[in-house]
């Protein structure tokens, strides 16, 4: 695998708070990776380290470069959307395009223009005059018009309604993604990116608690719906989590065989949200 990101023993301390604790991970080229974790888990800190926006301990390489020492070079090949609120409110859309075209060597102004032509965003509008959804579309237009090898999205759809969220991810996969590009997304709305992701990383209290391709997730985790009378027998198989559902319990197993479980109840693949809950509690 041609690794876009290689981290070994990545750590970050804010006073007494350990935001990242000995994190090691690889992100391969052509992957769409979801970095999922609760608030304060270290997602944003990890992204900031990748972009050279934060100091860190440990080894880190992004696109073969050291983010701490080669941030300027790195940012020519990396596009970043922090969240919906970070575009300056005073600037006009046409000024943003002019600034991007002049400062980013890989920005394609005509591509951004084409993308924006399909939206209701006017070129002479100020960012402050746009709705939250429009600002996100604008930021996405800027990001995907950079011929970047690596796109980093930190809660890109935070605060948007479902229509804009769906449209955002559709446009992302249709207009940006191909096998030569890599996307790293952090989000709370895991169910919306579930179909998009090729890899899943769970982070909790600064540590990676799960890192695997989506196809392995389906193989490694099985969810079983159990009736009360079978519950004790099923519990003996050591599920990693248990939750109540209508008329029974749902038990989640890691590295268990479906054939061993079927005699106790109905088995199925867990959703990412359920897996997340199981791993975080």
């Amino acid at each position: 695998m041609n690794a876009i990101v290689k981290a070994r023993g990545l750590s970050k301390q804010y006073g007494n708070f350990r935001a990242l604790d000995n994190v090691s991970l690889n992100v391969g080229q052509g992957r769409i990776v979801g970095l999922i974790g609760p608030n304060g888990a270290g997602k944003t800190t990890a992204l900031r380290c990748l972009l050279g926006l934060s100091t860190y301990d440990g080894e880190l390489s992004v696109l073969g470069k050291n983010p701490k020492l080669e941030r300027m070079h790195l940012l020519r090949d990396v596009a970043y959307i922090a969240d919906t609120a970070v575009l300056p409110s005073w600037i006009k859309v046409e000024q943003l395009l002019e600034y991007m075209a002049g400062t980013h060597p890989k920005f394609d102004r005509s591509k951004a223009q084409q993308f924006l032509d399909q939206t209701e965003i006017m070129m002479n509008s100020r960012v402050s005059q746009l709705s939250k959804g429009m600002v996100t579309q604008l930021h996405l237009a800027l990001a995907i018009s950079i011929d970047a090898k690596f796109l980093v999205l930190d809660e890109p759809t935070l605060g948007l309604d479902i229509l804009y969220r769906k449209r955002f991810y559709e446009q992302l996969s249709n207009d940006y993604f191909d096998e030569g590009r890599t996307i790293l997304i952090t989000t709370h709305q895991v169910e919306e990116v579930e179909q998009l992701l090729t890899d899943l990383i769970f982070i909790k209290q600064g540590r990676i608690v799960m890192d695997m391709p989506m196809e392995e997730v389906a193989e490694s985790f099985i969810e079983m719906e159990v009736q009360e009378e079978q519950l004790e027998a099923a519990r003996a198989l050591k599920p990693i989590s248990e939750r109540s559902s209508l008329g029974g319990k749902v038990l989640l197993f890691e590295n268990a065989r479906a054939s061993d479980l079927r005699e106790f109840g109905r088995v199925r693949s867990p959703s990412i949200a359920d897996l997340f809950m199981a791993k975080m509690t």
Binding site: L51, D83, V86, H104
Partner: peptide, 17 residues
Amino acid sequence: SDRKDKSVLYWKSLPVS
């Protein structure tokens, strides 16, 4: 002001020192 409104994150995402 750009730190206060968080737009610093946008400016810092560009290859300008």
